[in-house]
Design a protein around this nucleic acid. Structure first.
Lengths: 138, 138
DNA sequence: CCTTGACCCTGAAGCCACTTCAGGCTTTTC
DNA sequence: GAAAAGCCTGAAGTGGCTTCAGGGTCAAGG
């Protein structure tokens, strides 16, 4: 299976596949006589694993760790549990931040209901005001 | 006011201030004979404005747009309203994504309550399984 | 007068996870 | 035999900074 087919069957761009190879996240594939990459089902599996982890917001470094763990089947999975706990905490924190951000943005939006002149636009006035007192608040 | 004082009084790193200057987000400051940057209260104000916008998750490009709008006080603020509406939609979308992510991560975490051997770890098994059927699901 | 230390300067490179680009080779199809 | 589709490499670009190397400036103390 050539790189194009791998790309189509996983939905991952060709350039990204080559990038993962450079980053040692995918094992080196065989090559044809014409120097084209040749992939095995094993590669498909590992690429899907990487993408699924990425869809769970893991960094490539974290994926690298997981792949390392998978490669020593008799070891313990403590690392995996810790990694996941940390990730959960990160996402929770980010959600809380974004909730606050939503409030602020909606409040700000309320300051200008219809298009105004710049100099009297409530949003811009509020942005300037908040920037000014920002330090005092914190 | 030299760059160090500006940094202290706004909580922005010196290197970041110089970076904003390179990016034309801050006007060029005067210089002393010894080539030190000299800032005015106007610079303090604008730097605070930038940081406040950044704290609202705006990109530097968006901040650049807002600064441009502010510099033409007699224009309309339609751009500002549109920008903010878009930003609100983005944040809402991101929050929804993260909520789904939270569910997935917590469910995954449930697959391995106590440290296991790698080959029987529920998390790793589930990661592999989900990666495999991922495409079929979508 | 000289040195120490705090402060400042520039330009370049590093970070992450890719994406894009330039320039060229291989294989298939007409 | 020529065009089109597919593949190759290495380098540079993205955003929003941060870090680094290698200097120059300035006030205070000995």
């Amino acid at each position: 299976m050539q790189i194009g087919e791998l790309a189509r069957s996983t939905g991952v761009k060709i350039e990204t596949i080559r990038y993962y190879e450079r980053e040692h996240l995918l094992p080196l594939p065989q090559r044809t006589e014409g120097n084209y990459r040749l992939y095995s089902p094993r590669h498909v599996e590992q690429l899907r694993f990487i993408r699924y982890c990425r869809s769970l917001d893991m960094s490539l470094e974290e994926v690298r760790i997981l792949i390392g763990v998978l490669d020593t089947p008799s070891g313990s999975c403590l690392t995996v549990n810790a990694l996941l706990d940390e990730k959960i905490a990160e996402v929770d924190a980010r959600v809380n931040e974004l909730h606050k951000l939503q409030d602020q943005l909606r409040q700000l939006r309320g300051f200008c209901q219809q298009p105004d002149e710049v100099k009297t636009c409530g949003i811009l006035m509020e942005l300037n005001r908040s920037a000014g007192i920002d330090k005092a608040q914190i």
